[in-house]
Write a protein that binds this DNA or RNA. Structure first.
Length: 193
DNA sequence: CTGTTGATCTGCT
DNA sequence: GCAGATCAACAGT
């Protein structure tokens, strides 16, 4: 599997969100690999996106969104949950990131089950805070380079046809509801597979 | 400094 | 369907 180069992330945040579907999110802990196929993403942009963390300008928490593309933006929310984003933006914007909302478990099932303290595989990584728990992603991965084989990176995966991508309003968002920036692989894609 | 709200999930009702 | 866990940003005092 080839690691995805930085140039992949130097495009419009919304396009990168779509392109990330089907790619593999890989977490390396010591020599062990834990990974999954990215099946749902959301785009968060900048001044034109009131729902984005970066909308109000740079803060200590969101500064990764203004930094180099192809890096991880990890944030803590609701007092107990972490979520992962891949920093991605075109030259037109100073900030932007793609939230990874769901993956399909691939390698390291045992580890994930242990992390989540459950035996229901379908409930392992089907939410943004669930997948970070399964892959043991925390603030320690803040700013990690996703374009190199490091503790956290993204590689090539399966090919997704453009027509099998579904768009919806982003989940749990009240602002900018007209932006259909939640992207997922149609369930039919997996049942046919 | 204080109170509210949130890109959430779990467990109970 | 709702409370609880309880951190960071923000608006208001």
């Amino acid at each position: 599997m080839k690691v995805i180069p930085r140039s992949f992330y130097e495009k419009d945040t919304v396009d990168v969100a779509k392109n990330l579907l089907g790619k593999i999110l890989v977490r390396r802990i010591n020599e062990m690999l834990v990974s999954g196929i990215i099946s749902e993403t959301e785009a968060y942009r900048y001044k034109d996106d009131p729902a984005s963390h970066s909308f109000g300008g740079m803060t200590e928490r969101n500064k990764a969104m203004f930094g180099e593309v192809g890096r991880a933006y990890v944030y803590f929310t609701y007092g107990m949950h972490y979520c992962v984003n891949a920093v991605a933006k075109s030259e037109k914007y100073d900030a932007g990131a793609v939230l990874i909302r769901a993956i399909v478990p691939k390698d390291g099932l045992d580890f994930m089950l242990k992390q989540r303290k459950t035996d229901v595989i379908s409930n392992l990584t089907n939410g943004p805070a669930k997948l970070t728990q399964s892959l043991k992603i925390t603030k320690a991965q803040y700013g990690e380079d996703l374009t190199k084989v490091s503790g956290l990176y993204i590689t090539d995966g399966i090919n997704i046809k453009r027509s099998t991508i579904e768009s919806r309003p982003r989940i749990g968002i009240k602002k900018a509801v007209d932006n259909l920036w939640n992207f997922s692989i149609s369930k039919n894609y997996f049942t046919d597979y």
